Each structure stands twice: as C-alpha cells, then as structure tokens.
Computed example of a mutant assay.
Amino acid sequence: MANEERELPRKSVVLIVDDEPQIVEFLRMGFSYEGFEVASVMNGFDALAAVNAHRPDIVILDIMLPGLDGMEVAQRIRQAHDTGIIMLTAREDVEDRVEGLDRGADDYITKPFIFKELMARVRAVSRRRGLQIGEVLSFQDITLNRSTRIVTRGGRPIELTPREFELLDFFLQHPRQVLTRNAILSRVWGYHYGGDDNVIEVYIKHLREKLQDTNPPQLLQTIRGVGYTLR
C-alpha cells in the first residue's frame, strides 16, 4: 500500500431506528461519511427484524416509536444479541435514562445533538465491545489521533481549535473525495446550524495556514462551485 494511504478499519454496520425522516437522513449521511454500512427502519417491529437481518455493531435507537417503543426494543435486542445500543431521544428525565440503561442500552444521548458527540459515544461503546473504529487517521505526512487530540505534520505538532480539528478529521476520513459545502456544514457544524456558510472558507484558510499548505494550496484544494478535497 502506498505510504499516502491510510489504513481503513473494518466496515462496521449501524442500524438507525427513528421515525423522523430528517433525523434518519442526517444520521445516514453522517455514518456513511464515517465509513459505516448503514441500515434504517422507522418502527419497533421492523427494528427487531433488521437486527436479525443485518447483525449491526451499533443500534441508534429512538424511544418514541410506532408499533413498539424503544424501551421494549432495547430489552428484546439485549436478550438475543450482544450489539451496542445508544438511545437517541428527546426525553431528558433521569428516570427515562435509568430505564433505558436498565433495559439494555449502553449509552443515552438527547435531541438536539451534535453528530461528533454521538460519534464519540459510538467509538466508546465500540471499544468496550472490542470493535476497532479508527482512532488514528493519516494522509501523506499528516497524522490525527482522535483519542489524544494530537495532530502532526511531518512529525511537527500542530495546534488546532476544536472546530479545525473536526474539519481536518472529516477530510482525513475521505481523502481524494470532493466534500460539498452542505456535507461539511452538516458534519462539522451540525444540522441545526443556521449561520452563513462562508464560515467554511474562514476555517479552511486557518487550517491551510497551520498545515503550511498555502501559495497555492497543494493538499486542501478548492473545487469551485462544489466544495473542497484533500489530495
């Protein structure tokens, strides 16, 4: 393998169980960009069938579902399968969280949420279950460690803000792919972001400066009218 290629983790399977199409689409896009194979259903009974069919490594499970609620789904999944379960719901009551964990969930996150936090929880649950979801990403002489938050280029440490770190993380997951502005906004800023998308240009400029990738940029290239790519 050429030294500029990063070593990919095995492809994990995530099952999204939610009856809100907007949430499903947002999660589908996010997990696809993270390298997962994605399946989705919109009710509890279909969720049980999908677990048997797809054998997912992680289930993202809403509580309020038609047919069979998420609490019952979590309990039935746990009785038959050793898959990671993260409850994703609008409920914030402590009692609901405790019940979800008692029914078999590994973790719990409330809506609205930021995708990078959900992915951090997915990685944590995966580690506890012995799954390998890449913690170290690299391309050419750039290395990013998700656990330690250390970034280097040619062995030289690079100090990044949290947003710059997430932006570089996204590019390193998809080398040579053209990432659209909408995809970058959704993945790095979250689907609730309602500000000016010119913020992307500002952060790309800062990232290029810190990576010493200027005059002209050789790594983070602009694809006019579309977005950006790491090449």
Rank of each mutant, 00 (worst) to 15 (best):
M1A: 10
A2C: 03
N3E: 06
N3G: 01
E5L: 14
P9N: 10
R10T: 08
K11Q: 15
V14L: 02
L15V: 07
V17M: 01
D18L: 01
I23W: 03
I23M: 12
F26C: 06
G30D: 05
G35C: 03
S40P: 01
G44C: 07
F45N: 13
D46S: 08
L48P: 12
A50H: 06
N52H: 11
A53C: 01
H54T: 13
R55P: 00
P56Y: 08
I58C: 08
I60F: 00
L61F: 04
D62S: 04
M64S: 12
P66H: 04
G67D: 09
L68Y: 07
L68I: 11
D69E: 13
D69T: 08
D69F: 11
M71N: 04
M71K: 11
V73W: 10
Q75L: 09
Q75G: 10
R76P: 02
R76K: 15
R76T: 08
I77W: 11
H81W: 15
T89M: 01
T89E: 01
T89V: 00
E92V: 07
V94Q: 14
D96Y: 07
V98Q: 03
G100A: 15
L101M: 15
L101C: 06
R103E: 00
G104Y: 05
D107A: 14
D107S: 13
Y108E: 03
I109W: 09
I109V: 15
I109Q: 13
T110L: 10
T110Y: 05
K111M: 00
F113T: 09
F113D: 02
K116S: 11
K116H: 13
K116D: 11
L118H: 05
L118P: 04
R121A: 08
V122K: 04
A124Q: 14
S126K: 08
S126T: 06
R127T: 05
R127W: 04
R129M: 15
Q132P: 00
G134S: 12
G134F: 01
V136H: 07
L137F: 15
S138Y: 08
S138R: 14
F139A: 01
L144D: 05
L144G: 04
S147G: 01
I150A: 14
I150W: 10
I150M: 14
G155I: 08
E159H: 13
P162E: 10
D169V: 02
F171Q: 02
L172F: 06
L172R: 04
Q173L: 14
Q173H: 13
Q173F: 03
H174R: 10
R176C: 00
R181H: 03
N182A: 12
A183T: 11
R187H: 10
R187L: 07
V188Q: 02
G195H: 10
D196C: 09
D196A: 10
N198D: 13
V199D: 00
I200Y: 05
I200P: 10
H206T: 08
H206C: 09
L207H: 12
E209F: 03
L211Q: 05
Q212V: 08
Q212A: 13
D213Y: 11
D213I: 07
P216Y: 07
L219W: 11
Q221T: 12
I223N: 08
V226L: 09
G227P: 06
G227K: 08
G227F: 02
